[in-house]
Simulated scan of single mutants.
Amino acid sequence: MNLLESHRDADRDARRDLVDALATTPREGGQVVGLTGPPGVGKSTLAGKLVAEWRRRGLSVGVIAVDPSSKRSGGAVLGDRSRIAKPPGDDAVFVRSMAARDRLGGLAPATMEAVLVMRAAYDRVLVETVGVGQSETDVSATADQTIVIVQPASGDTLQFIKAGLMEVFDLLVVNKGDLGDVAKRTRRELRLALRVLDRADTPVVLTSGATGAGVPELVDALDARFSALGDGLAALRGHKLREHIVRAVTELYGTLHLRTLGGAPSALARLEALAPDTAPSDLLDALAPASTRR
């Protein structure tokens, strides 16, 4: 994991070879779940309950907790790690804090690569973001499924749609279910809204991060949707990896270079035309300026 976040030139080749190997020999069983929502909604508390439920079912768990960056050091503040309980001596749970470093997408720069590593080693991988907003939707590009947490009585149950999350979530969670009627009312409002938006089949689960109520039902819903992906899982992951490469090319070489490729949709189409088992470094080379290719 340290290798993935290293900026040393001496580590570049080793980092590339590791990512290529993991991406082209995927471990299909490692289910990746993204968790996002506005600050204060109880993401970290619910994450801890999810980890506990997975461990109760005998599953190993890797957690990528993307924390705000320290303004002094640039590293992760480590707040989320302290809220995710890990039993002493339990090697089947690994929590890694990563610094967002002011990225609008809510994720750290090396999150996709970290997901590849953890997916190869753990039965479940949980990616928790800093927060959610107009641009903070990158979590969906790393996860097989994404949970968006909604705050009861937040004043506008459709705020997650206004925030640009309509195409992001696979499941909705109304956390703080211990608030009683107000939480149940929010769940009803969300279900009505989803029906209008032709998303009536989207699960809306009522949970309590404080008591753990509803978490087993949430895990069951995740498993059911993951199983339904079936043979489409490899294609989904391949598509999301290619979307990640397009974003990486934009960050590395700028929007001007992306325009020379015909824009993001054209660049993505180029990558989709390549073989499904094409290594990430080769995908990157396919879009990079000729002068920078290996």
Rank of each mutant, 00 (worst) to 15 (best):
W54A: 12
W54L: 08
R55I: 09
R55W: 05
R57F: 07
L59G: 10
S60V: 05
V61W: 09
V61H: 06
G62W: 14
G62K: 13
V63N: 01
I64H: 01
I64W: 00
A65I: 13
A65D: 05
V66C: 02
P68Y: 09
S69T: 08
S69C: 00
S70A: 07
K71V: 03
R72I: 12
G74Y: 10
G74A: 08
V77H: 01
D80R: 04
D80A: 11
R81M: 02
S82F: 04
R83T: 06
A85V: 13
A85E: 13
G89I: 09
V93K: 04
V93E: 11
R101V: 03
R101N: 11
R103S: 11
L104Y: 02
L107F: 07
P109A: 03
A110L: 09
A110M: 14
E113A: 14
A114K: 02
M118D: 08
A121T: 15
D123R: 11
V127N: 04
E128A: 09
G131M: 05
G131Q: 04
G131P: 03
G131R: 13
G131K: 11
V132Y: 00
G133D: 06
S135G: 09
E136W: 03
D138K: 06
D138N: 07
S140N: 09
A141Q: 12
T142E: 09
A143L: 01
D144I: 02
Q145T: 03
Q145E: 03
T146I: 04
I149R: 00
I149N: 03
V150D: 01
V150M: 01
V150Q: 03
P152M: 02
P152C: 05
A153T: 13
S154F: 06
G155L: 14
T157E: 15
L158E: 15
L158P: 05
